[in-house]
């Protein structure tokens, strides 16, 4: 290829001079500003809020965000592929009820877990097939399944909490390993697994490609429909897992649990810089997003702030984060 015959003016990019340390720090701050901002706030809180930076409180904080954290991992994939899923909260509630009922019936923990995961998978599959193959808007589809699955939870439980006395079940979320309880370990595992999936596998990169330009992805030989179904299916499975863990933590399947859960999960993702336009997401961002939400709630509890104000603060944080992000990425 002879490029020197080109009449086009040679493009002169500024030579990449070795950056000064300060410049590197600045670039790092801009790139990871969310992580840095969070760390700064975290350190500030550790010094200013009593009992905040104690082992016990940290574990409590981690436990409180464990379900949101797990589902945020799969929601990240969903948003990154330019989709949306409102049904996760209902899936959490329904699979909690379902697993409690199955465990009461069989007296076997794993039967309950299997039922919850399978049920989550089926709901996710239905979502995915309707959205990908029937081409119905994801917002509407999952709004509908959100209502329906919540309905199923109430129908199955007759509107009552389903108590469980099975010892294995209570031990499931109550057990701990190396001082951290099981749900935290599972959330950690989700962060690692889904972070790896996003960054290092064809599955993850295809997800970003689909979100970046679905038509181009299709013409490049990506099976877009199948990918979207898989994304929703995995989301359903993880929501099902979160449902069992939540039920185990509260030792009963409650049909009205996890109200507004889906919005918290989406908030966490958006806080973590996942673009609603699809195509960009980072696991570090999502982790930070999850912890920002959890920390805000935790600190307000420690400071004895009325729970009603927590809604106000959560919304304000979300708004502030997206405004800042918008300013940062403007003109890109």
């Amino acid at each position: 290829m002879k490029t020197d015959t080109s009449p086009e003016p040679k493009v002169a990019f500024p030579p990449s001079r070795p950056d000064s340390p300060w410049r590197q720090v600045l670039a790092f701050l801009l790139e990871y500003n969310l992580v840095v901002i969070f760390l700064v706030i975290f350190v500030a809180l550790a010094f200013s809020v009593r009992y905040f930076f104690t082992v016990q409180n940290m574990l409590g904080l981690a436990l409180s965000v464990s379900q949101i954290g797990m589902v945020a991992c799969t929601m990240m994939f969903c948003l990154a592929s330019r989709d949306f899923d409102l049904s996760v909260g209902s899936i959490v509630a329904f699979t909690g009820v379902l697993s409690a009922m199955v465990i009461n019936f069989t007296d076997n923990l794993w039967a309950g877990v299997a039922a919850a995961l399978l049920c989550g998978a089926i709901i996710g599959l239905v979502n995915g097939v309707i959205i990908a193959y029937l081409r119905i808007n994801a917002l509407i589809t999952t709004l509908a399944t959100m209502e329906m699955v919540r309905g199923l939870a109430f129908i199955a439980s007759h509107g009552q909490a389903v108590g469980v006395s099975n010892a294995d079940f209570i031990y499931f979320a109550g057990s701990s390993f190396l001082g951290m309880s099981m749900p935290i370990w599972m959330t950690l595992a989700c962060f690692i697994v889904f972070g790896f999936l996003l960054n290092s596998t064809v599955y993850g990169r295809n997800t970003l490609a689909i979100g970046g330009n679905p038509e181009a992805a299709r013409l490049a030989g990506i099976h877009v429909e199948r990918m979207r179904v898989v994304i929703f299916l995995v989301q359903g499975v993880i929501a099902g897992l979160a449902g069992v863990i939540l039920a185990s933590r509260i030792t009963s399947g409650q049909p009205n649990s996890a109200q507004g859960f889906e919005l918290n999960v989406i908030s966490a993702c958006v806080l973590g810089g996942v673009s609603l336009k699809g195509g960009s997401a980072t696991i570090s961002g999502v982790i930070v997003g999850v912890f920002i939400l959890g920390t805000a709630e935790n600190v307000m509890n420690l400071l004895n702030i009325d729970a009603f104000y927590q809604y106000l603060v959560r919304g304000a944080i979300l708004l502030a984060a997206v405004v800042v992000d918008q300013q940062r990425t403007r003109g890109e």
Partner: peptide
């Protein structure tokens, strides 16, 4: 509209 994934890198677009 249907060729490139605009917000992804040159590398990713080549290897897609």
């Amino acid at each position: 509209e249907s060729g490139i994934i605009p917000i992804r890198s040159v590398t990713e677009n080549i290897n897609l």
